[in-house]
Structures are given as structure tokens and as C-alpha cells.
């Protein structure tokens, strides 16, 4: 029984939102040269959630930064929602980042001078949404991560795990085509972490393409596919079985 070869059998192919082809990236030069990614290819479709695992330094954050048009690869092609990144100007890439991509960074990146709700509403404000729309969507996102009551606080008033949840709420607003999350559950206890994962899962179920970097196999298991990076290359993939194969595990 090979789970590896199972397709989703849903007929028409869903749209590929993130496409990475033979992407390479190295840092430094000479003896200190580090090959962070070596000819990595990865497609993520609308509605799909992919988890990226791998040891520290294996290239996970690099992969995510390239997918999010924050870092330019040395070689390879990247498109987000059909928009090629490599040919784009700095302004074009900034637009991709702002309009198509939602980020949850390893280090939160909340703006300390803005309140929680202002932080969450920021991507919508930048999109030119009306203030009322931005506020109500931000409130909804905060509620989904269990932070409804903390909208008026500043990031510095929150615990690490609470800041992380706010960062996730910010990535949720505006239903981005591509959601990139780098260790979003790092500072969270297991129950809160599960809540965050269920939010990411529902973003995928509503049609976003989601890429999640995690060390936690329990969280990776929420994904449709799990890829394993080692030394800048993709080693293996595990994918979920078809629904009819669920729950047929042998009894103990």
C-alpha cells in the first residue's frame, strides 16, 4: 500500500498558486559558501497545505523567503499566482508580497507602535480597504486565534505566544492567495498550537495555498503533503491517504 502515489482523485487540477522550479540559493563565497537551497522544486495548489520539515539550517526559512519574494534566488523560477517573481522589479515584488502573500515570521514582526488590532488591520489598510472593513475583518481574525479581547493592547503588553497568535491573525486577513508560516507554533503550548494549526488548515480549506515550516510532526500532520529538507534538497514526501483509507488502521 503506497500512500506516496495516491492522487486526490478530484478530477480537474486545482490552480497552482506557488510554483518553484529548480530554485537554488547560496550565501557567502569561497570556503564559507553555504548552499542553502539546491535545485528545489515545489508546487502548492490552491486549497493545499504543505508542511516543510528539516533540521536547523536545512534551508526551510530560505525556501519560504524566496516563495514570499523577500529573497531572490540565484537560479530557478518562482511564480506566485501566475506572477513570475524573478523578472519583476523591486516594486513589482513588493506588490506581490503585499497583495498575494500573508506571512507569519519566525520572529513575529509586529509593529510595536501600533495596537494589536492596528497591526492585524495593516495589510488591509495598505490594500486600500475602508477603515470599517479593515477593522471588522481584523476583529474576526483576532477572534479566530482567541485574541478578541486584546485588540487595544500593544504588542509589548503580550506574551510571546499571544504575539504569535496576533501575527497569525494578521496573515489571515484579506484571504491571501498564498500563506507562508515559519514555525508559527514555536512559543505555544500544545493546545494553543493546535488552535493555530486549525486556523491555518481552514485558510487552506477556504482556498489559500499554505506553506508551513515546522519541527513538530504533530503540526506537520495537518498538511496534505509533508516535504523534508536536508542540506538544501527535498528528501521525501509524505501525503495524506484518500479519505476512504482513513480509519482503517488495524486495531491493536
Amino acid at each position: 500500500m503506497s500512500a506516496q502515489t495516491v492522487g486526490d482523485g478530484s478530477g480537474a487540477d486545482p490552480e497552482i498558486v506557488l510554483s518553484m522550479r529548480d530554485v537554488s540559493k547560496a550565501y557567502g563565497d569561497g570556503d564559507g559558501r553555504v548552499h542553502a537551497l539546491r535545485r528545489v522544486s515545489l508546487d502548492v495548489a490552491a486549497g493545499e497545505m504543505v508542511a516543510v520539515m528539516g533540521t536547523s539550517g536545512s534551508g526551510k526559512s530560505t525556501l519560504l523567503s524566496i516563495a514570499g519574494a523577500m529573497v531572490t534566488p540565484d537560479a530557478g523560477e518562482v511564480t506566485v499566482a501566475g506572477v513570475p517573481i524573478e523578472g519583476a522589479s523591486a516594486r513589482g515584488r513588493a506588490r506581490v508580497r503585499r497583495e498575494l502573500v500573508g506571512f507569519v515570521f519566525q520572529d513575529f514582526n509586529l509593529i510595536p507602535a501600533l495596537t494589536v488590532i492596528e497591526n492585524v488591520a495593516l495589510p488591509l489598510d495598505l490594500d486600500g480597504a475602508s477603515r470599517a472593513t479593515a477593522r471588522s475583518e481584523a476583529r474576526r481574525a483576532l477572534a479566530a486565534v482567541g485574541m478578541r479581547e486584546r485588540g487595544k493592547d500593544f504588542p509589548d503588553d503580550l506574551s510571546g505566544g499571544q504575539r504569535q497568535r496576533v501575527a497569525i491573525a494578521r496573515a489571515m486577513v484579506g484571504q491571501r492567495r498564498l500563506v507562508l508560516a515559519d514555525e508559527p507554533t514555536g512559543a505555544l503550548d500544545s493546545v494553543t498550537g493546535d488552535r493555530v494549526l486549525s486556523v491555518l488548515r481552514s485558510m487552506a480549506d477556504q482556498g489559500s495555498a499554505v506553506v508551513l515550516v515546522t519541527h513538530d510532526a504533530r503540526h506537520a500532520a495537518w498538511a496534505d503533503r509533508i516535504v523534508h529538507l536536508a542540506d538544501g534538497t527535498i528528501l521525501e514526501e509524505a501525503r495524506a491517504a484518500r479519505p476512504e483509507q482513513l480509519l482503517t488502521g488495524e486495531p491493536r
Partner: peptide, 20 residues
């Protein structure tokens, strides 16, 4: 190890789906 890991992860995916 890799083969075993992939198999356990697939099982976890199935369980997680059913669980949630």
C-alpha cells in the same frame, strides 16, 4: 530511517484528519 519516517508521518496525517 527516511522510509520509516515517511510512513509514520502518513499515518499521523490520516489520524489528524480523522481526529479533527
Amino acid at each position: 530511517i527516511q522510509v520509516q519516517r515517511a510512513a509514520v508521518l502518513s499515518r499521523m496525517q490520516d489520524l489528524t484528519r480523522a481526529r479533527h
